[in-house]
Write a protein that binds this DNA or RNA. Structure first.
Length: 844
RNA sequence: GCCCGGGUAGACAAAUUGGCAAAGUCAGCGGACUUAAAAUCCGCCGCUCGCAAGGGCCUGCGGGUUCGAAUCCCGCCCCGGGCACCA
């Protein structure tokens, strides 16, 4: 007997080498725009958009080595890519690296090693491991965002946005470490408001910075969520982040100063209950208003104090309300009442207009403030059961619900508050004192970073001409090499004097370069477009290439990117579409978010010492086992706990499939072509095994459609176990069919062993086979209806395709003997005893 | 406090969405092979009453709808994640 030991270290490199040699996973653009030079295949009947499929996983940030989370993401994505290929699609499945970013720069500050060097090392390590995992990547389209050939086009997009007025400069607060002389990212600030590196107290500084006008797109970013096939919880998070609220803008006038102050409110129906007015400490008019009043000095102190408080302090809702009277009044436009003005830190400058009308009877925070400062509280909405009819009682306040208006105005009293909202807004509009308005929580995107390792912002400052964009033919603005990455009170790029000093393209006079670089989220907001035409050096892409592939059919990544990355990429897509560069509105048609991998119930981290390295696992059991296990351990959208014992179980299963197949091939005297369902006439073990095989086909293809990889793998395990039990009693032909089918079904999860087994049994390449019931084929078949009757009543109907053999139908009906079924009008089977479970009858 | 998830054998889970609860994997127990071990293969594996055949009870807890509920509805308990002065 030959040495039938499953040896992944022999099998896996062999197939990987073949796939690399034959460039199996490369797909050419039919427009000839880019990609590989594979001759175009003529596939009749359907156009490219339908035949092509774009499967994409979020690109990795290359730092150190890939971890288990990467293994999970790319195992899920690869399974989807293979699944779609085997439905007959041409699948684009590329890979790249999000290679700019803070960790490489910090490493450089510490060691002096240029980020380009350490990044290249990490990329090599990622690429090597992805090859070892056997992921089916079109390597001809590989990219890295730190390469000038890529960021040249990031800069081009920035300039397009700039010309369209979507990129602009304004002052904004940054966190600043006075000791390190540098801007800090939020994650570099400790909970106590100290610099994570040196422990100094973090300060706030105002800097002129670049913003992208994502708020212009708030409405469309919200509305178009309805058009995409994303998990509902992700859509909910995006909706909440955009934070649309409808209400009214109402003008309160300061008669003393002759200034109008608009406020935004969602409750114009409570306007008659406004008894004071509050401004945010950051509001530019606060100090002006307080000027000349007795408390001017104390207002100053309050504002300064509020500005230096950390978010943690200010964000605490339980904290007592604080504030200062400004000694001025504004007029409530609905009743002409002069109400006092305050400044208080519970009002935020970023939301609405930075000032509010306070209605203590009907808002919790206003109520708390009124109580703390002894301000009047006037009820203007009656509660249920006539509560608060006279408007004087304190019971049930603050009341934030709805009810009839009271104590307002004879014209409005008695109207239900829901209706009163629009009635009062209409009245304000007529009087010129306000109008209906919509507000969003979404804020413009700050893209400036005072960092070295990022895409340079392609802008020049000329004394004569002002701000000048770098002309397109001078792109890319390359990142200069510098000696010292340590920040010294300005962006590290400012130290590269030769680079900073340049020439104005308009007047040829001296000009200085922008020294801020871009947020790395900018780099990753368009990379999916670049893959479609990755080696184009005349343009960011050829529109014909995008038409072939975009939008991404299936996007896959961690839920931690549910808001920022996914929102920014959608914004870029819409903005570029408006500029005429794209003809679609959404980048990712379908999204799958996979769960975290934990160890012993908690997140893997170096400090906990519970990190599992994919490389170590693969050394021990091979890539197929590792990939299969990570998908088998639980539903892939949920968190999963890594267990070394569980890995052993999957390893045993993969080995069992391989050994059984090697043994079967040997007994058969070598591979025989094709894999056709054998004819089985009698009842017996052959029929049992055949049924199991058909069941597995149905189960796995169904499960793949809904990402239930764990149960798909379990079904193959069950099939293999059945083969093992029946290996001495079933015919060789049936064993071959069952094992070959099992291997074929396993291909998306364990490609190497699957390819090896299939090759042994049939001499054919498993990835060139189509699923027995490809969706397309199914659509083209005639369909019959199986009618299920229980106790004479029609319970349900299922559809069976016409090319299901009578034997198969009979098998299925026998398997569910309690169901009476009709095929094409003819009664096929028998009596109902106990209601059977109908779906068992589906034939695909 | 609000918004999402989730709660099924000792552990991870399945139940194709209202149709025989617990497929599959791990752990555990027993057996075959072996001088032995490993590897491999076979069998058992929710609780309970019973010598047995067989019966009763089981999806966090309590109710409801239904011929039929892990699944739908109402109330409660627990766990995880996110948001938190958003006018």
């Amino acid at each position: 007997m030959a040495d039938n030991r499953y040896d992944p270290h022999e099998i896996e490199p062999r197939w990987q080498a073949l796939w690399a040699r034959e460039r199996t996973w490369e797909v050419a653009n039919e427009s000839g725009a880019s990609g590989s030079s594979e001759p175009r295949a003529e596939l009749p009947g359907r156009d490219a958009a339908e035949r092509n499929s774009y499967v994409l996983e979020m690109l990795p940030y290359p730092s150190g080595e890939p971890h288990i989370g990467h293994l999970k993401t790319y195992s899920v994505g690869d399974a989807m890519a293979h699944y779609r290929r085997r439905l007959g699609r041409r699948v684009l499945h590329p890979m790249g690296y999000d290679s700019f970013g803070l960790p490489a720069e910090n490493h450089a500050i510490k060691t002096g090693v240029h980020p380009r060097i350490s990044t290249a090392e990490s990329i090599d390590s990622f690429r090597r491991q992805f090859h070892q995992w056997g992921i089916s990547i079109d390597w001809s389209r590989e990219l890295a965002t730190h390469e000038p050939s890529y960021y040249r086009w990031t800069q081009w997009i920035f300039l397009e946005l700039f010309r369209a007025g979507l990129a602009y400069r304004k002052e904004a607060a940054v966190k600043w470490c006075p000791k390190d002389q540098t801007v800090l990212a939020n994650e570099q600030v400790t909970a106590e408001g100290r610099c994570e590196r040196c422990g100094a107290l973090v300060e706030v500084r105002q800097l002129e910075q670049w913003f992208l006008r994502i708020t212009d797109y708030a409405e469309r970013l919200l509305a178009d969520l309805d058009q995409i096939d994303w998990p509902e919880h992700v859509k909910t998070m995006q909706r909440n982040w955009i934070g649309r609220s409808e209400g009214a803008e109402v003008t309160f006038r300061s008669e003393e100063l002759g200034i109008d102050y608009p406020v935004f409110t969602t409750r114009p129906d409570t306007l008659f209950g406004a008894t004071f007015f509050v401004m945010a400490p950051e509001h530019p008019d606060v100090l002006r208003l307080a000027a000349g009043t007795p408390d001017e000095h104390r207002v100053h102190e309050y504002v300064n104090h509020a500005l230096t408080e950390s978010n943690e302090e200010r964000g605490n809702a339980e904290r007592p309300k604080t504030g200062m009277a400004l000694g001025r009044t504004v007029v409530n436009p609905v009743n002409g009442e002069a109400i006092p003005m305050y400044v208080a830190d519970y009002v935020l400058m970023e939301y609405g207009t930075g000032a509010i009308m306070a209605v203590p009877a009907h808002d919790e925070r206003d109520h708390a403030f009124a109580q703390a400062f002894g301000l009047p509280i006037r009820r203007v909405i009656a509660g249920p059961a006539g509560e608060g009819d006279d408007g004087t009682g304190e019971q049930g306040l603050p009341y934030t619900g709805d009810g009839p208006l009271i104590n307002s105005h004879p014209d409005f009293d008695g109207i239900d508050s829901r209706e009163a909202r629009s009635v009062i807004v209409a009245w304000l509009d007529r009087e010129g004192k306000g109008h209906a308005s919509v507000n969003y929580k979404l804020r413009d995107w700050l893209v400036s970073r005072q960092r070295y390792w990022g895409t340079p912002i392609p802008i020049l400052y000329c004394d004569r001409c002002g701000m000048v964009p770098v002309p397109e033919d001078q792109l890319p603005v390359e990142l200069p090499d510098i000696e010292d990455y340590t920040p010294k009170g300005r962006s590290p790029l400012a130290a590269a004097e030769d680079w900073v000093n340049s020439t104005c393209p308009t007047c040829d006079g001296p000009a200085r370069r922008e020294t801020d670089t871009m947020d790395t989220f900018v780099d990753s907001s368009w990379y999916f477009l670049r893959y479609c035409d990755a080696s184009n050096d005349a343009a960011a892409w050829d529109p014909a290439a995008l038409r072939e592939w975009m939008p991404v059919d299936q996007y896959i990544g961690g839920v931690e990117h549910a808001i920022l990355h996914l929102m920014y990429a959608r914004f870029f897509t819409k903005a570029l579409a408006d500029l005429g560069h794209l003809d679609f509105q959404e980048p990712f048609q379908a999204l799958f978010t996979q769960g975290m991998v934990t160890k012993d119930g908690s997140k893997m981290s170096k400090s906990r010492g519970n990190v599992v390295s994919p490389a170590a696992i693969i050394d021990r059991v091979g890539a197929d086992t590792a990939r299969c296990y990570i998908l088998f351990v639980g539903p892939p959208d949920q968190d999963a706990d890594w267990s070394d014992e569980g890995v052993e179980g999957v390893h045993r299963f993969v080995g069992r499939l391989w050994r059984l197949s090697a043994e079967t091939a040997e007994r058969a005297g070598g591979p025989s072509a094709g894999l056709r369902s054998p004819i089985v006439s009698d009842e017996g073990d052959d029929l049992t095994l055949l049924r199991k095989t058909h069941w597995a086909i149905d189960k796995v293809t169904g499960d793949l459609r809904r990402f239930a990889f764990n149960t798909a793998i379990a079904a193959v395990m069950e099939l293999v176990n059945e083969v093992s039990r029946l290996r001495d009693s079933a015919s060789l032909e049936t064993l071959r069919f069952a094992l070959g089918t099992g291997a074929s079904l396993l291909f998306p999860f364990a490609p190497h062993v699957s390819a090896d087994v299939y090759d042994r049994l049939t001499g054919e390449r498993v990835w060139e086979q189509r699923w027995p019931e490809a969706e397309e084929a199914l659509l083209e078949r005639d369909v019959y209806e199986l009618v299920c009757q229980v106790n004479g009543r029609v319970r349900d109907r299922v559809q069976a395709s016409s090319d299901a053999s009578p034997e198969t139908l009979k098998d299925l009906c026998l398997a569910a003997p309690n169901v009476q079924a009709h095929l094409d009008g003819r009664e096929v089977v028998k009596e109902v005893v106990v209601p059977g479970k109908l779906v068992n009858l589906v034939v695909r």
